[in-house]
Design a protein around this nucleic acid. Sequence first.
DNA 1: TTGAAAGCGTTACCAT
DNA 2: ATGGTAACGCTTTCAA
Lengths: 363, 363
Amino acid sequence: MARPEKRTTLREVAEATGLSTAAVSYALRGKQVSKETEERVRKAAADLGYEADPIARALASGRTSMIGVLAGDLQDLWQQHLMAAIGRELLAGDRYALILDAGGDPARELALAKQLRDQRVDGLLVSPVDPSAEGWSKIADTVPVVSIGDALSRARTAGEVLFDNRAGIDAVLDYLRGLGHRRVTVLTPTGPSTPDRPADVYVREAADRLGIEVEVLPCAQELGEATAVARRVLAAGGGGAAGGDRGAVGDGGLAGGDGSVAGGGRPNAVFCFSDSIAYGVYAAAAEASLTIGRDISVVGFDDHPVSRVLTPPLTTVDWGLTDIAKEAARLAVAAIEGRRVRRKRILCAPRLSERGSALRVPE
Amino acid sequence: MARPEKRTTLREVAEATGLSTAAVSYALRGKQVSKETEERVRKAAADLGYEADPIARALASGRTSMIGVLAGDLQDLWQQHLMAAIGRELLAGDRYALILDAGGDPARELALAKQLRDQRVDGLLVSPVDPSAEGWSKIADTVPVVSIGDALSRARTAGEVLFDNRAGIDAVLDYLRGLGHRRVTVLTPTGPSTPDRPADVYVREAADRLGIEVEVLPCAQELGEATAVARRVLAAGGGGAAGGDRGAVGDGGLAGGDGSVAGGGRPNAVFCFSDSIAYGVYAAAAEASLTIGRDISVVGFDDHPVSRVLTPPLTTVDWGLTDIAKEAARLAVAAIEGRRVRRKRILCAPRLSERGSALRVPE
DNA sequence: TTGAAAGCGTTACCAT
DNA sequence: ATGGTAACGCTTTCAA
């Protein structure tokens, strides 16, 4: 193993054909050479098994054919799915996705973005944890950036595939209100270091407007952690929610009732800002012998495929993942190639998939 | 945007310090320089905002600090999860994961592996679709390869994190047999181009030995497609399975009964070679109003986190994903750094997580 | 259309 | 310990 067996180089092809390296370089890229020599060169290259060295090419040209893809938090199953889709999309266009995970940490996110730029990625696709961070500006000035989800408010991006979070949140709160809910617990992936995510801010506004009382609690995406948070929320019972003091762990007790919410009051409604978090609620509910869609209402966000396999299927907000991946890739590639595009800002409309995890509050 | 604003180079730092580029290069890497100048250089570099250009470094040193990670099929949620975990693991060691998806196609898999090698990845982590392919040999001779899952039978790999599929399959078949099942439908992600995957071969052997009749059917990982296949399997009803003729689409009908298997005979048992596929069975069962764990038995493979959130939770085989990611990364890094390791072959033992999706056959 | 040569920014070898 | 200087393999002016 590890016998690097010298690759054939451009020079060797040049010698074999009696041309200069420049001519060969052009020929192989089909530029300013006669059809005739192009053929000849191509054949020689094939015979010698020549393939351009991407690194040398990158150093000389400044381009790598790699696109950095920075996920805010890959613990989120939906983001995993999105990254996979983006990777496929880019690969179809002969580009590589260099996928990195910020793990929900805004500082790390910016650091990784810089590292990607240093790796000379041709472009950067980012699903930001902290879209309003100052640092994006400098990065977006150095490399074409396409943001997915929220807009990078401080940066001049090359494109945006935005989710209409306001409309999505409105739709969900409206829906819950229509079912009779007046108190809703919101579980958001936002960490303590990023208190002002657009969705978090907006959900309070919307709730106020609709006369709904919300309690917004932070929650990790990873199933175990999400379950732990959900456990506390459910244990708090009734229409309210767990204490806002995130340090406190609650009493660890579960809702005592079997088939009815502890306290016997109005059913709890939990609005999760990602389906992954909602799965934690399903897990915690099962532990507490609460039936989702009867004893408690749950609504997700983003619509991961498995959400429809749960019992009951999870009511959630769908943005159309496939199109998102396609559009994001398209925008990035267009920017890289210096092409002008009609719309650099795509706004995805929410589709509320009503599936049975939320119940009507009995009179 | 795209004003590359010249990065500071090594030469500039050299000029600023009055040293040679060589000295600076060494100093920054803490090699053969006096503590004193190292300090001085570091300071100057910091002041100038110098950071080494990874591309230039790669060209000169032959190393990129990137590790190629080739997934057999990223439609599989478990593989998505694994790739995310590996990415985190590598990043923790200051290496990048260049994640690519073969989409279940063996030819594509080899092509991508070659491309990754050409990209000068320092090492290659692969979860192979076709572990017995000839092509691995040449690749493994050029770059350190660590395979995950099945061993690359024709290649000299730098390490292996293998799943004891035989033991896993034995465990499941034993278990199903203990529940009284004598006919089992096996859904495998294997495509027509890779007919002889180790697991597919072995499951027949094991079934013969145990006196179980198996029917092995190919099935895509993507939920929609998996559901379609499962639909046909369930429609076939009884203890048997869908016709072996993969071209035929069946009649598209669903099991007619409500709460009992069509034909009224012994419950069907479906053994899925990935949890993703099992989710398709859940979906199809719901459509047909069949209750999993009562009307039909389902067992998965690989244990994705959401499997325990389903109703009923999916009985499946766990290999310990976190450790797999850790070990694979460790082996790859060790090989790259030329370190010797005690065990280059890790064998993961299966743990059958019995969770209620399989039922005892009534007498 | 083709060739010569100057980079691209490091690393690593060989002197000193 | 430090400096000089070839590589590394390609792209890209600039001339011919």
